[in-house]
Design a protein around this nucleic acid. Structure first.
Lengths: 354, 354
DNA sequence: CTGAAAGCGCTTACAG
DNA sequence: CTGAAAGCGCTTACAG
């Protein structure tokens, strides 16, 4: 007969104070060693079927909860992945996070979340805090103006890092990006095929890598078609709707106006369409607009927005897979992965008027 | 002279394989005991200033990273909070999650994220996995059709739990909810004041608690104004845009048509507006519509949507604060908190035509 | 003000 | 197939 450690009937309410059940409790109750219980927990075939059954029964009866932190400490492993996002309230990144969490969960990992709100200072603090939990790896979508040196200082201890979307100069980590150049090229070519010849590139910060890449795709498509690229047709503005609406006037300052704009992203395109409406110019009829991202709203706006679909959830899953690969092969060489984007043609792009 | 444990110049690249620096390494290098290093780490005033300085210098030099999991194990505490969300790709909940993470971070806690995608089965799996990391508490926005008994089975070990938004029958945890009844009442009263008399309640599942509460607010406002509530004016549909668009016809099946609808939420309202457009009925002119949530899109749609603002980020911060209170006072009685909502009047609601 | 010892909950060789 | 012992990285009384 073994000592019974169970708590009787009064297990209602606050489990807060009560000490957690441990392998020692189970071992004592069943009359085996802690090592045996541990083997059962980990599904080892070394344990006799009878013993295993008795241990399992007792685990259930005492409502044992595995303490993975303790196990990870002893085994010098980790099942935690830190996920640090620059802007979780942006549906694109929320969807990305959902994809990461989903794919990690399938592999038995768990997501430790941080949100930086585009602040490099918060990013340092958040990363430092998450690093103390000894993650097996880090997926980071860097805040604007992140610096590789600062990131290295705080993530030095993390061998396994995957950067997403933005790329601080001089980093040495794995990197997953969207095919920005190709996407903008597709959009520009689409407008050219509709008959547009005077096309602007609208929005974004010229010093951001993604904006530079999208601009280069635009320039490439224009060049291929033998069309001139004019400085006045590159309009810069913060990638928010109000800023884009305000910047609309920049397209109306030249004698001849462009008939179409390739926008930095969907938010900018939405803002531009507002700005056009305000001037009595109807997007999709008087002026063609394309976006980038295919946020859920894009298909539902009036007019529906022609844009580039990037499937953020699939990108999240892909990021998780790439990181897990890296965790499995820490010494493999640094990898750059470019995810495809797909043109979605909708009503906001049409042949030029007249 | 103490033994120098530092690694020379070759600390470039993979920190993955190299053993992490521990308090033992620091203690040995400085020539003190591990206990002293530990006291320095935790900012104890007991350590002599000189010793403290030498320890700090060595911590920096060796790029020591605190192992909080080990510390938590020894101290029998936890700085992890599990956050389980029913639908992270919904901007409302993404914003809520950002608020939770922000407020937790300010108090030195860290967010362990799980997303269930409205699946009770995934919810059980996700919670079970997160529980193994011994969180100090759990914030759960339950999936549809969650059952208190199942939740109790998997969260039994967590003393500190806060439910958000949905409330499985028979639960015994803290609960934070929106003032659904009052919100729907405000919207209905607003339409009545505009002159509407035949008003529908549109969308949502009648068996969900939030839908029931919103319906009851609608019924109360109608009753207060002495207006009849007719069964045919309660239209049920899944809270998605396409479903709502498809359900629009239910409003057109009676001889006299209603002139306005109080919608279950913004998504439903957007879908209804699409359905109206498709029938040549212009929302905001021929038919008034209100929503619930004030998602970012609401202010930007055409027409802009009259709705109830709930400030999901503030709700997230509030949820974090309530949970931390509970963690601080595990024996306090169960608390129910109702967060206020605010009517935002926009173009989608107007006096009835004619 | 500092050190030696024990222990948090788990796992891993090593015997038997 | 099972147990005794040591140890993951940290902290906490307890001496001195």
């Amino acid at each position: 007969m073994s000592t019974r450690a169970h708590s009787g009937g009064n297990n209602t309410g606050r489990a807060g104070g009560s000490r957690a059940v441990t392998v020692t409790d189970i071992a004592r109750a069943v009359g085996v060693s802690r090592a045996t219980v541990s083997l059962v927990l980990r599904g080892s075939p070394l344990v006799h079927a009878d013993t295993r059954a008795r241990v399992h029964a007792e685990l259930q009866r005492q409502r044992y909860v595995y303490n993975r932190a303790a196990a990870n400490l002893r085994r010098r492993t980790s099942t935690i992945v830190a996920l640090v996002i620059n802007d979780l309230s942006n549906p694109f990144f929320a969807e990305f996070a959902a994809g990461v969490d989903e794919a990690l969960g399938e592999q038995g990992y768990v997501t430790l979340l941080g949100n930086t709100g585009e602040s490099p200072r918060r990013q340092q603090a958040v990363l430092a805090s998450l690093m103390e939990h000894a993650p097996a790896g880090v997926i980071l979508s860097p805040a604007e103006h992140s610096e590789a040196a600062s990131l290295r200082a705080v993530m030095g201890a993390a061998g396994n890092v995957l950067l997403f979307n933005r790329e601080p100069a001089g980093h040495e980590w794995d990197f997953l990006a969207l095919d920005n150049a190709h996407g903008a090229q597709l959009a520009t070519r689409h407008l050219i095929e509709l008959g547009h010849r005077d096309i602007a590139f609208f929005g974004g910060h010229a010093d951001s890598s993604s904006c530079q890449q999208r601009r280069s795709g635009y320039v490439a498509a224009m060049a291929q078609a033998g069309l001139p690229v004019r400085e006045a047709r590159m309009v810069e503005c913060a990638p928010t709707r109000p800023q884009a609406a305000a910047a609309t006037q920049a397209l109306f300052e030249t004698a001849e106006r462009p008939t179409a704009a390739v926008c930095y992203n969907d938010n900018v395109a939405m803002g531009l369409m507002l700005g056009l409406f305000a001037r009595g110019v109807q997007p999709g009829r008087d002026f063609s607009v394309t976006g980038f991202d295919d946020i859920p709203e894009a298909a539902l706006s009036t007019p529906a927005l022609t844009t580039l679909a990037v499937d953020p959830r699939a990108r999240g899953r892909q990021a998780a897979q790439l990181l897990l690969q890296r965790i499995g092969a820490p010494d493999a060489s640094v990898a750059r992965t470019i995810a495809p984007v797909e043109l979605r043609v909708r009503q906001s792009s049409a042949p030029p008027p007249g």
